[in-house]
Design a protein around this nucleic acid. Sequence first.
DNA 1: CTCCTTGATGTAAACGTTTTCCAAACGATA
DNA 2: TATCGTTTGGAAAACGTTTACATCAAGGAG
Lengths: 344, 344
Amino acid sequence: MSTNRSSADIRRVAAEAGVSIATVSRVLNDPKRVSLKTRQRVLEVAERLGYRPNPNGKRLRKGRAETVGLVIPSPPGRFADSFFLELLTGLGEGLAGVGLDLLVATCPPHEDELACYKRLVEGKRVDGLVVARTRLYDTRIAYLLEQGVPFVAHGRSDQIKTPYAYLDVDGRQGFYRATRHLLQLGHREIAFIGAPNEFNFAQHRLEGFQLALAEAGVALRPEWILEGDLSEESGYRLAQLLLGELPPTAILCANDLMAIGVLRALRERGLRPGREVSVIGYDDIPQAQYTDPPLSTVHQPFREAGRRLVEMLLDQLEGKDAGTLQEVWVPELVLRGSDGPPTR
Amino acid sequence: MSTNRSSADIRRVAAEAGVSIATVSRVLNDPKRVSLKTRQRVLEVAERLGYRPNPNGKRLRKGRAETVGLVIPSPPGRFADSFFLELLTGLGEGLAGVGLDLLVATCPPHEDELACYKRLVEGKRVDGLVVARTRLYDTRIAYLLEQGVPFVAHGRSDQIKTPYAYLDVDGRQGFYRATRHLLQLGHREIAFIGAPNEFNFAQHRLEGFQLALAEAGVALRPEWILEGDLSEESGYRLAQLLLGELPPTAILCANDLMAIGVLRALRERGLRPGREVSVIGYDDIPQAQYTDPPLSTVHQPFREAGRRLVEMLLDQLEGKDAGTLQEVWVPELVLRGSDGPPTR
DNA sequence: CTCCTTGATGTAAACGTTTTCCAAACGATA
DNA sequence: TATCGTTTGGAAAACGTTTACATCAAGGAG
């Protein structure tokens, strides 16, 4: 004899407990407002009936979606960056316990991305958003600021001056450290494979590299500063350009995927990564541990970031000023097998 | 002079168009029900005011969540499997255009997973679910069947007899083909690193392997059938066991991550993958193209599967019988560089 | 004793839709 | 002209909450 499964209503609970629905609601949302005795009775009944407030009733009444959104851009043919999965996991972890849901939308190309944000915002489907992989001038951020929608960015957007909440990992520091490390090992011939300029982090990482070089008084060869598109393929292709007669003794890559492409190019030339040519990546994606040799890289704590982003968003939803929610984390250099002293 | 931004209400549209709200609703949901003239007028006004029906009003009234759910299990320390990201992308693509949202929840360990499903369905947060990575007896599926919640499984659950909707990729065929390929190359000493038995696909993949061997009259060495946990680490560890005095000439792995671990173990022993020892994986995850050598594997079309899963779920939400929604796809063997004829 | 404060509860009005009835208008048919 | 389907549109009742406001009893201060 199963209890009536079809989801007890707040009315049902109220009737069964001999109180008004208002009291039931108060018991759940503001317990101190109701006397201990009735509170217990109501709780007991609610428990027994397996009552769960209907989220749509609540959402309608409160005028909130009780949902935060994340838009994942997914290249049509290829695989999406696994960094999103880690971020997503972190967001999920942060959201557990809090009553909010996580809405994920995927967007094909580049420009439609903004349209996707508009759909979520104008359709009132989310109370707030997480914006990932920020650009130098990020139209998504501009839009959200204009609309006054709470959001928090993973990464900054340097050309946007209005204050907004962000959590960034300091790419300048990251690559400054990586470069210093290479310099200390004795490298003087270091090449750089950067990211497309539209991304906000591209310039930062380059600057870290340049700064370390300048401090050490090491000349910067313009022809050794290249720009890839963050794919393995582009790392592979650009490395081939680099590996002429007198190749650099080290290559810094703005992300791990490109570094993986570089490793492949090196192997094909019979150059051992970490011996003839050192390679350092950025991100510390999972597969970085399983390349040959394991990739030295700059570690980004994506999952922790996801958790923190949720906290920051929550703060905003409770009215905290976005301008006060700005953090920059310093990443760590993790050395595995793809770097070593130069052999010439 | 911006138009009044704060989201036009259906009342507002009705007033402006000089009709009742009922008519506005009809124009949007059942256009034929209203005369051409007023329909056009209403549409024009709605357009001008940028009217978007409030999803919460609609959801409450219709008693539906207009949302489908996906639960991603995420190992506490490590990275989640990137297969989920691809599936997610496919789901997102399938959902675009349809009015449904995608809710993603992440769950830490093993048992709590069911609790997570319960939270979503008992809290009426979703109309339907996608269940991924099915188990031999999948408690999630049993639960959803019992509750009568629409869902569609990616993979089957062989020990559940009640009919339900699924889309599976035939692991038996996949590994039958892979094994036949190795046999044709001349291999006779083939080891197998399987998946934990709880997963439904584990048995299938093993059977494909066994069948091909039996057909060819090749003896099966029990000590060469191992069980990993799907991680690179476990592939690495188990491969070390295998690489004793007289190692197998080929190793079949139930997923790519373990195969990547195997590649590493081989390198450390100075054995060239595809030469001294052939390796074939399963899944065709992105990084399979960038291992050294590129990994031969069995391709699973995750993204297409995601799209199809959405269609199947939609069919169910429209009342179609789940028992008629069952598909098994046959995967393709993709040969890259990690297989070759045996060298002894 | 009266008056005022406090605490605990109930009443009823939202929140923004969809949908069930009805009623009016309109042709067409007899 | 009276009758009758058929469009067309409006009025109003949900859907399940939260919350402003009112009520009422109890208790303390004067």
